[in-house]
């Protein structure tokens, strides 16, 4: 494309080459644009088949993406629950009532602490007697076996799991404290489960991405086979591999993009459908939680990923099958 047959005189050669180069680039881009449009035209001639292929791609992409959106929602929801985190400090049994109250006052002044609630040994015993049903058995004991408890409510600064753990370690270091216990084990477990699910989504996305590659690859393979005669003729009259490859690659791009659009629509519709029941559930818990949809950034990412998968799938198919077709 950039070759010249005859060398031009020096000055002309420079301007001529620039002119030729910009013309060549222009022609090149124009041809790509033409193939882009004509390959879409080719697909639109078989709308049902094209839609079915794109729908398979769309569903394959919608599954992991939809799960990802649900996970994000779950994380948002559980983030609100962390406000319920409390730390219980069980004081040593030889701590006096006065020492405990002093400690409570000192802790209230810490930056990470919202509030401290003091439960004395006697209060604890009364509570235990009332709730456990072992009241009579306790009467047999001479001493109150229960420790005094300080219930710490961390403030906003200390609500992430990591900073809560730091606070826990700090509180444990006080000499009066026997055991410091975090009442958020279940949230940690929930997070752990969500981390597993998140990994699962990644694996699912990888598998279904592979499925998209195979679907596009197979569709392009069939397209190549059905146009075998045409490919042979084009090769015989001097069509380069790139020229022959181009319409198939753009078909793959279109399949990917259409599949991505279908995935976005499928996810949005699914979220719309479940948003009603979710709203009702949230209302029952007096929660202001609202289902979040696919953001613009996610949509752009999804479409780019699907288009790239389409391109890659057709690239693989074209690379493998075009070589096999040679004039004989």
């Amino acid at each position: 494309m950039f070759r010249r047959n005859k060398p031009l005189p020096r000055r002309e050669a420079i301007s001529g080459r620039q002119h030729g180069l910009s013309m060549a680039v222009k022609t090149y881009l124009l041809r790509h644009a033409q193939v882009l449009v004509s390959s879409l035209g080719q697909l639109s001639r078989t709308p049902v088949a094209t839609f079915m292929t794109a729908a398979v791609i769309g569903i394959a992409l919608a599954l992991p993406t939809g799960l990802h959106v649900l996970l994000d929602n779950a994380q948002q929801l559980s983030g609100g629950w962390q406000g319920a985190t409390q730390i219980s400090l069980f004081l040593k049994t030889d701590t006096t009532d006065f020492q405990a109250r002093t400690l409570a006052n000192r802790l209230r002044k810490l930056g990470e602490v919202e509030d401290v609630h003091y439960i004395s040994r006697q209060q604890a015993l009364n509570e235990f007697k009332a709730l456990s049903g072992f009241g009579d058995a306790l009467k047999a004991l001479q001493d109150n076996p229960l420790p005094a408890v300080l219930v710490i409510q961390p403030n906003n600064k200390a609500r992430s799991p990591a900073s809560t753990s730091l606070l826990l370690a700090k509180l444990k270091a006080y000499p009066e404290v026997d055991i410091a216990q975090l009442d958020m084990q279940w949230i940690k477990r929930l997070y752990a489960i969500m981390a597993i699910v998140r990994q699962g989504v990644v694996i699912l996305a990888a598998l279904l991405g592979l499925a998209v590659l195979l679907v596009v690859g197979n569709t392009i393979r069939l397209a190549i086979q059905s146009r075998r005669a045409e490919i042979v003729v084009i090769k015989l009259i001097g069509g380069t591999d790139a020229f022959i490859r181009r319409p198939f690659l753009y078909s793959g791009v279109w399949y990917g993009l259409l599949g991505g659009i279908i995935a976005v629509i499928a996810i949005t519709v699914a979220l719309l459908i479940i948003s009603g029941p979710v709203g009702q559930l949230a209302a029952l818990y007096q929660s202001p939680f609202k289902l979040s949809y696919l953001g613009l950034g996610s949509i752009v990412n999804l479409l780019m990923a699907s288009t790239l998968l389409g391109l890659l799938g057709s690239w693989l198919a074209v690379g493998k099958h075009l070589r096999e077709i040679e004039p004989t």
């Binding site: 090769k235 015989l236 009259i237 001097g238 069509g239 380069t240 020229f243």
Partner: peptide
Amino acid sequence: RRRIPYHRRNIGI
């Protein structure tokens, strides 16, 4: 091999 297409452009078949 990659020059074959350009060779064929010089031949009308």
